[in-house]
Lab assay of single mutants.
Amino acid sequence: SLEEAIRRAEEALRKGQTFEYAGIRVTTQEALEKFRKWAEKQK
């Protein structure tokens, strides 16, 4: 689910890792916010 993907992205960010979902790379807090906004639109 998208909620699960967001949780995994947050977890990866805390560990300093890269999270990738549907071709979207989350490597920074800013990218995480963009990913969250994108995920909201997918619902």
Score class of each variant (00 low, 15 high):
Q17C: 11
K15Q: 13
K37E: 14
A39L: 11
I6A: 03
R14N: 10
Q29A: 12
Y21H: 05
F19A: 02
E33I: 10
E30A: 13
K41N: 14
I24H: 13
K34G: 09
I6V: 14
R25E: 10
E33R: 08
A9E: 00
E3C: 11
E33V: 09
T28Y: 02
L32F: 10
R25I: 15
G16M: 04
A5I: 15
Q29D: 07
E4D: 14
T18F: 15
R8P: 00
K34H: 12
Q42I: 13
R14I: 09
Q17E: 15
E30N: 07
K34A: 15
L13S: 01
T28V: 03
R7E: 09
G16I: 02
F19N: 01
K43P: 09
K15T: 13
A9Y: 02
E10D: 05
K43N: 13
Q42G: 06
A12F: 07
L32N: 00
E3T: 11
A5W: 12
T18R: 06
F35I: 03
L13H: 03
G23N: 06
A22P: 02
V26M: 06
A39K: 03
E40T: 06
G23R: 03
A22I: 06
A9T: 01
E20L: 06
L13E: 01
L13I: 15
A22M: 15
E10P: 01
R25N: 08
E11K: 05
Q17H: 11
E33A: 10
I6Q: 03
V26L: 09
K15N: 15
E20S: 06
A12G: 03
V26G: 01
Q17F: 12
I24P: 00
R7F: 10
E11Q: 08
K41S: 15
A31M: 12
G23F: 04
E33F: 06
E3I: 11
W38I: 02
E3R: 10
A12T: 05
R14E: 11
G23P: 01
E20G: 03
G16K: 04
K41W: 13
E10W: 06
E33T: 07
I6N: 01
R8V: 06
G23A: 04
L2N: 02
R36E: 03
I24V: 06
R8M: 14
Q17N: 09
I6F: 07
R7Y: 10
W38Q: 02
W38T: 01
E30K: 08
S1M: 12
R14V: 08
W38R: 02
A39F: 07
R8I: 07
E10A: 08
Q17L: 15
A5R: 03
I24R: 05
A39E: 01
T28H: 05
E4M: 11
I6K: 01
R36A: 05
R25Q: 13
L2W: 15
K43A: 13
Q17A: 09
E30L: 10
K37F: 09
E10R: 05
T27P: 05
K34V: 13
R8E: 11
V26Y: 08
T27Q: 10
T18E: 13
K43T: 13
K15P: 01
K43E: 11
R14L: 12
A31T: 13
F19K: 00
E20A: 05
G23Q: 04
F19Y: 09
R8K: 12
E40Y: 08
E40Q: 08
E11F: 03
A39M: 08
A31E: 15
G16A: 03
R7H: 11
E40N: 07
G23Y: 04
T28S: 13
L13P: 00
W38V: 01
R8A: 14
K43Y: 13
I24E: 03
E3V: 10
T27W: 07
E30Q: 10
K37D: 11
F35D: 00
K41F: 11
R8Y: 09
L32V: 03
A39R: 03
I24S: 03
R36W: 04
I24F: 15
F35G: 00
L32E: 00
Q42K: 10
K15V: 11
R7T: 09
K34E: 14
R36G: 01
K15H: 12
K43Q: 14
Y21Q: 03
V26H: 02
G16F: 05
A5N: 04
E33L: 09
V26Q: 01
A22G: 11
F19L: 02
T18H: 13
T27F: 06
K37S: 11
K37A: 15
Y21S: 02
Q17V: 11
L13V: 13
L13G: 01
V26E: 01
K43F: 15
A5V: 14
L13F: 09
A5D: 03
E30P: 04
E11P: 00
E3S: 11
Q29V: 13
L2I: 11
E40I: 07
R14S: 14
K15I: 10
T18A: 15
E40C: 08
E3M: 12
L2K: 02
V26S: 01
L32H: 01
F19H: 02
I24W: 15
Q42T: 07
S1Y: 14
E30R: 09
A5Y: 09
E30H: 08
G16E: 04
A5H: 06
T28W: 04
E4A: 11
K41Y: 12
F19D: 01
K43W: 14
A9P: 00
T18Q: 10
I24L: 08
A12R: 04
K43G: 12
Q29K: 11
A22L: 12
W38F: 04
S1T: 13
E4P: 03
T18S: 13
E3L: 11
G23M: 03
V26F: 10
A5C: 14
K37L: 13
L13W: 05
I24G: 03
I6T: 04
L32R: 00
A9W: 04
K37T: 09
A22K: 12
I6R: 02
E3G: 08
Q29N: 08
W38H: 02
E10Y: 07
A31R: 04
K41I: 12
E20N: 05
K37W: 10
A39N: 02
I6Y: 07
F35S: 00
